[in-house]
Design a protein around this nucleic acid. Structure first.
Lengths: 192, 192
DNA sequence: CCTTATCTTGAATGTACACTCAAGATAAGG
DNA sequence: CCTTATCTTGAGTGTACATTCAAGATAAGG
């Protein structure tokens, strides 16, 4: 007879940013109440427990990323320039140094791998979906003769995803714009 | 008038393995007492606090890795075959699924980045040293005409290091031996 | 073999955490 | 406007944590 007052998307994006910045273990419920502007009772009523907030935040993260992805990789445009834009946007995120410099999925799987089966499954599924989305793009690039590479679209997607994971990790200790730009060039050249 | 009874290297390697498996936050002092077979008092007397144990474990990790590295990259042998062996050994570590499948340095920097200045510095310094060691190898490979790549030795080293960071991350959700072998091939081809 | 400095032991301490719950507030239905 | 279901509030609870410390054990020096 009464509707929830808080904005679910706002709450989950705030939680998402906290998890990206501090990691799962170091994001306390107190910190979550602060950034979401919700009290413990409301958070527990809405999401069950800390793990529930985390899984919901991951879902929100993936939703947001999918939107960006489909917006950037418009099917009427050639793939390669879009891929280039995509890499450059990631380099930008790495340089600015805010929470988005990390990928919530890879940061989380690196932290909690082997600790919770459910979290592992969700993260794996999302990372696989990401790889599949990239495979589709490489497949289209090949069919449009944008890429004359002998490697399969899946293989190119895997290499590309792997490289981006590495790029974000590398950027954690070297935020030099030129160095990251050169690495981005290398990645781009390696998938052409 | 009495000498310490425990084997410092054993203790630090056990701690190192725990930190690699569980991460910094989830490796409790209780767990450290279990794996090191030492009581809290001894650990605190020897290393000050948990952070001290962590930093000492990182030092041990780097010492061990340097030994392996200099053993593998013998200066009388050509570089490229050694690099190939090196990648393959990392792929093996990723597949076996034990603690060594992760790099303590990158896993730690991913978890605690921005949380403790001292830990950040130590991890950054060690990762830089790793990049420099790789640069030396690529430099030698170029001077011996093993590599006709136009990119600088430093650039090749950065790309190689980045790729390995990515490979280890990728392997966390896809431990398929064939997939990892193909990615290893791609990395090797991209630096030749 | 006795002294003494140092190590070892593990129970105890204070703190921070995830989580609960009962009381209070508020919106929809009649 | 009153009822009632649901949300909000925040103090409270039990647990797990990092850390301490005083008592006991043990090796080296004289």
């Amino acid at each position: 007879m009464r509707v929830a007052e808080f904005d679910r998307e706002f709450v989950l994006r705030q939680a998402m940013l906290a998890f990206m910045q501090f990691g799962y273990a170091k994001t306390s419920m107190q910190k979550l109440t602060q950034v979401t502007l919700l009290h413990p009772g409301s958070l527990y009523a809405a999401f069950g427990n800390k793990k529930g907030i985390f899984l919901a935040a991951i879902e929100q993260y993936q939703t947001d990323r999918n939107e960006q992805f489909t917006a950037l990789f418009c099917p009427t445009q050639p793939v390669l320039p879009n891929l280039r834009c995509y890499i450059d946007s990631i380099v930008s995120e790495c340089i600015t140094g805010d929470a988005m410099k990390v990928c919530l999925l890879t940061k989380s799987i690196s932290e909690v791998e082997g600790q919770d089966a459910q979290i592992n499954e969700v993260l794996s599924a999302n990372l696989n979906a990401y790889e599949n989305a990239l495979t589709q793009q490489f497949s289209r690039a090949k069919s449009q003769n944008e890429i004359q590479n002998v490697r399969s679209a899946q293989q190119l997607a895997r290499f590309f995803a792997m490289s981006l994971y590495g790029l974000r990790t590398y950027a954690l200790t070297n935020r030099d714009a030129d160095a990251l730009a050169l690495l981005a060039d290398d990645i781009f050249n390696a998938i052409k």
